[in-house]
Computed example of a mutant assay.
Amino acid sequence: MKTELVLHDQQFTLHRFPKRANETLQAWDAGDEYIINHFTETPLTSGSKVLILNDNFGALSCWFSREHQVFLQTDSLISQKGAQQNLQHNQCNSITFLRSTDAIPSDIDVVIMQLPKSNRFLTWQLHQIKTHLNPSTPVVAVNKANAIHTSTLKLFEKYLGETTTSLAWKKHRLVFSQVGTQETATVEQKTNWTVPEHNMQLSNLANVYSGESLDLGARFILEHLPQGSKQTKIIDLGCGNGVLSIKLGRNNPYSQITSVDESFMAVESARINVTNNVDNPERYTFTANNCLDGFEKEHYDLVVCNPPFHQQNTVTDHIAWQMFRDAHHALEAAGELLVVGNGHLGYLAKLTRLFGKGQVSIVASNKKFVILSAKKAS
């Protein structure tokens, strides 16, 4: 796996976060290289204020921090920590970190953007650019050519103005636009919807998974969460919009619940939804974290998890495996990890390897999903 980015007589050592001994995935892609090539051919004025959106692990931040004042905004704590790690390792100049829930500065000279996977999040980011930045501020975005659709370009034209694209290079394409002067429709920060069968009113910020309905895994496990149990110290790991946290709190009114996600918008959505749907939200804690890094060992009696199977645009199971290992570390003796996942992902074998033979059982299953209970040995 390549770790040295070498371009235009510059070299950076870059790693994904968290750094793994047998990493097979690279910390940058050809889109990052295309952006760097473009601004090497058409350089910015030294000292320019550069807003970088969605920099996966800091490759762009490292490059542009050499000569410019960089502001990096991301919705991902993991991306933020990856950028921090790579900036420090390469002894780069310091930059300003912004969460996706923070306002962007108004005096930016250029916006550089890795296009997000979600059109809802892209729409929100374009609206923020239009709302906060001066007219004619240039915007340069990049993505794989087959992921830049006509609908993508129409969003740029709707919220910014005239938009063009580059030729494809290494299967990537650049998008060029700039802040226009035309009036555009207001974009609401939250999407509001209901789950009537569970009497919930939910709000999702723009980058939260499954933005207008329950994902099928969450819908399935909602019917199988423990109720009135002895479990009082509970973690909702990968909480998303907090729907499982709400149900866990309603089912277990004396529990202390920690809602954890690596997405800043997910954590804030969970906070909003718990406040609006649970009678005593003060017993909840909300935190953006890399799985359960830093959580107390052998302290919790229940961890509930609906794991993702991708990191940014990369399909991978290493996040689920890290969640399982971290849960095992955080659970007290006889504590339980409750997991929902697609049946084909092989979680039963993984959990058995971690928790031990005879410690893992199937709680329920349907044609697509399986719910597994893994209990830590006493």
Score class of each variant (00 low, 15 high):
323 M>S: 10
1 M>C: 08
322 Q>L: 14
285 T>P: 00
135 P>V: 12
297 K>T: 15
73 Q>A: 11
378 S>I: 06
38 H>I: 02
203 S>D: 02
37 N>M: 08
71 F>Y: 15
10 Q>Y: 09
287 T>R: 12
214 L>N: 03
209 Y>Q: 00
192 N>W: 05
250 R>Q: 14
91 Q>M: 11
333 A>T: 06
268 E>S: 10
83 A>T: 13
231 Q>T: 06
47 G>A: 03
194 T>H: 06
38 H>Y: 09
14 L>M: 11
258 T>W: 14
191 T>C: 01
111 V>L: 11
349 A>M: 09
187 V>E: 10
35 I>Y: 13
311 Q>T: 13
253 P>D: 04
188 E>C: 09
305 C>I: 07
327 A>S: 15
308 P>A: 00
224 H>S: 09
378 S>F: 11
114 Q>W: 01
160 L>S: 00
191 T>H: 07
195 V>R: 01
278 V>N: 04
197 E>P: 01
174 L>M: 02
119 N>V: 07
57 F>S: 03
198 H>T: 02
24 T>R: 07
339 V>F: 14
159 Y>G: 03
247 K>C: 04
143 N>G: 15
122 L>Y: 05
61 S>H: 10
153 L>R: 03
284 Y>E: 00
157 E>S: 01
28 W>F: 08
351 L>I: 07
312 Q>P: 00
79 S>I: 03
350 K>H: 12
49 K>H: 11
107 D>P: 08
125 Q>G: 08
22 N>F: 03
60 L>Y: 06
172 H>C: 10
163 T>I: 00
166 S>V: 02
272 I>L: 10
275 T>F: 13
229 S>K: 06
111 V>E: 03
4 E>G: 01
178 Q>S: 13
291 C>W: 13
212 E>I: 05
276 N>K: 12
360 V>H: 09
296 E>W: 04
68 H>C: 14
271 R>S: 01
285 T>E: 09
40 T>Y: 02
314 T>Q: 12
272 I>Q: 13
159 Y>A: 04
319 I>C: 13
178 Q>E: 13
175 V>G: 03
320 A>M: 12
211 G>C: 10
160 L>A: 01
296 E>N: 10
364 A>H: 14
181 T>Q: 14
33 E>S: 10
8 H>N: 13
269 S>D: 09
24 T>D: 02
338 L>I: 15
